[in-house]
Design a protein around this nucleic acid. Structure first.
Lengths: 102, 102
DNA sequence: ACTATACGCAACCACAAGGTTGCGCTTCAC
DNA sequence: GTGAAGCGCAACCTTGTGGTTGCGTATAGT
């Protein structure tokens, strides 16, 4: 299964902001993205590296700049995990209810 | 909107393990939960405190022990956020496709 | 050719996070 | 009432993380 650091990638608010921005703007450079946050370009670049490691963004060199693009697929893993927990929980509630209704 | 530290709470693997265990076992004490992980009771208690702050578990004193119970509701917020990002992304792809098809 | 823009890399810093140990207080069981 | 089981709190240690500054290098534009 794909990198489990997706959860980690989502933990930081700045990173979530970057994802949000990229969800709405096709592609962007580290510099552009840094302007969306109160941080330097390098800080943004580090976050983008984290997101890239988690498989959430694609990097693509275009001349002297690097354009980042969202690849939201790994988010499905998170949703899936949540579903599983939810399902298990529901099962548990069910069996408890059945037990109590005996 | 409820505590945004749900993302933070989910970032740690041990914490996710606790959630998984609680999803399957109704209630448990900090001690019991600590036995599921290679950490001390205190470490587990700290994680449980984090989960509690995120609204993911309920604490309930029963005599000399404290039983923890899962309250998975806040997970819905995470799912929702993911859905929003996904939706926005799809919209973007759509408008791009429309643009290219002109 | 020259200048400005955008990256990449490395050093460095401060603080939060995860973890442990030690100790004292309450509750249960004999 | 005495001992063990559980918890809570605090001190402390170590690492990881988010952030910055500084500098070197490549590309674009004029």
């Amino acid at each position: 299964m794909p990198p489990p650091d997706v959860f980690d990638a989502l933990a930081d608010p700045h990173r979530r902001a970057l994802i949000g921005f990229l969800a709405a703007h096709e592609t962007a450079t580290a510099g552009e993205l840094a302007q969306q946050l109160p941080v330097t370009r390098q800080a943004a670049a580090k976050h983008l590296e984290t997101l890239h490691a988690a498989g959430l963004v694609e990097r693509r060199r275009a001349g002297r700049e690097v354009r980042y693009q969202l690849t939201p697929a790994p988010l499905a893993d998170v949703s899936e995990w949540i579903s599983k927990v939810g399902a298990e929980w529901d099962d548990r509630l069910d069996s408890l209810r059945r037990y109590l209704e005996r």
